[in-house]
């Protein structure tokens, strides 16, 4: 297989990003407390979500608002498969189809979760990809609400807003770093692939690209399903580490949080997705600490609930006003080091 120059640059970029991801992970493993490791893990889960979002949004340039719901599907399917039957007999006594009478090993569960999520995204995608960009965004909002109501309504399967507990802890920080590296390479590979280039061309000029023989709907569908798979992986990683899940984290708040990350970093590039995730994840931790009213250099700051929300909203508004392309714009990480294209 011969690679084009941009694809070779893509490989270098993916390697550089992977190095950054591994470095942050190593630092956290050696110097972080248990609590800090949890935060770093959370940041990596969000990273997976944001990259999953970038695969569709960045290449097709259609805003998707349903991603957290697909993450939720992945998390719930994996959780239902992997939780021991004894625990499920207590937590889901009324589950239909014998869902509480079996349990599988983590790998099989993850594969089933990815397959089911991919199937559902494919079905939804068939409709989404044919709409105009703004119509697709709105339809994705409808999808988010529908899936969330199902989570809340079928308490016999999903337990709604209550905790679905007893999921064995399978993942550690190391495993999610490995997953994140794979996903980054995948996302970058897609972006520079024939499909990725054609899709980005269709986002710039849909009619023009179609006239050149690009099957826009098909490419959007491919990106949409790939994005769904990555979101499922994010959901699985979330469930496999925390041990409990509920429907609440897969709704509007999470949608906006991850969207803000992608927008700040720049949705057109994978580097932007990574940068935005880490800036907001760690920035919000600082703000949350300020929110509790700590004592800084002798000054006792007041408790300010809602500060993190204000900051998050301001990040979105200011990015849109002053740098709608995000921090990275069209530049990937390797473009920072070598200016020539």
């Amino acid at each position: 297989m011969t690679l084009s120059p941009t694809q070779r640059r893509g490989l270098i970029g993916a390697a550089l990003l992977s190095a950054v991801l591994i470095a942050i992970g190593v630092l956290a493993t050696y110097f972080g407390s248990r609590y800090q490791i949890r935060i770093v893990y959370g940041a990596y889960v969000n990273l997976l979500v944001v990259i999953g979002l970038q695969i569709f949004m960045g290449n097709a340039r259609i805003t998707n608002l349903s991603h957290s719901a697909f993450m939720g599907i992945g998390a719930y399917v994996a959780a239902i498969c992997v939780t021991p039957a004894a625990t499920k007999a207590i937590s889901l006594p009324a589950a239909p189809f014998g869902l509480n009478a079996f349990s599988l090993d983590p790998v099989t569960s993850a594969i089933i979760a990815i397959a089911i999520t991919a199937l559902i995204t494919a079905l939804v995608g068939l409709f989404i990809v044919r709409m105009t960009p703004i119509g697709a965004t709105i339809a994705s909002l409808a999808v988010l609400v529908i899936i969330h109501s199902i989570f809340l309504f079928r308490t016999d399967i999903f337990k709604g807003n209550q905790a679905f507990f007893g999921i064995p802890q399978v993942f550690s920080l190391t495993s999610i770093i490995v997953v994140a590296v794979i996903v980054v390479v995948l996302a970058r590979g897609f972006r520079e692939s024939r499909w990725g280039v054609q899709l980005r061309a269709s986002a710039d000029d849909e009619t023009g690209a179609a006239a050149m023989g690009v099957n826009v709907a098909r490419l959007r569908l491919i990106a949409w399903i790939l994005s769904g798979i990555v979101l499922a992986i994010a959901g699985i990683s979330y469930a496999y580490f925390l041990g409990t899940i509920s429907a609440r984290p897969f709704y509007f708040n999470h949608v906006f949080l991850t969207l803000a990350m992608l927008i700040l970093g720049g949705m057109r590039t994978v580097t932007g997705a990574v940068l935005g995730t880490f800036v907001i994840s760690f920035g919000l931790e600082v703000v949350r600490w300020l929110e509790t009213g700590p004592v800084v250099v002798g000054i006792d700051l007041p408790e300010v609930l809602g500060l993190s929300g204000v900051v998050l909203g301001l990040v979105i508004v200011l990015t849109m006003a002053f740098r709608p392309q995000g921090i990275m714009g069209d530049r990937e990480i390797e473009d920072i080091f070598s200016k020539t294209k």
Partner: peptide, 15 residues
């Protein structure tokens, strides 16, 4: 899309 996201941002800030 840019406008929509800005509006979301404004809405979060005000809330």
């Amino acid at each position: 899309t840019t406008g929509l996201l800005t509006a979301f941002g404004v809405s979060i800030v005000l809330q």
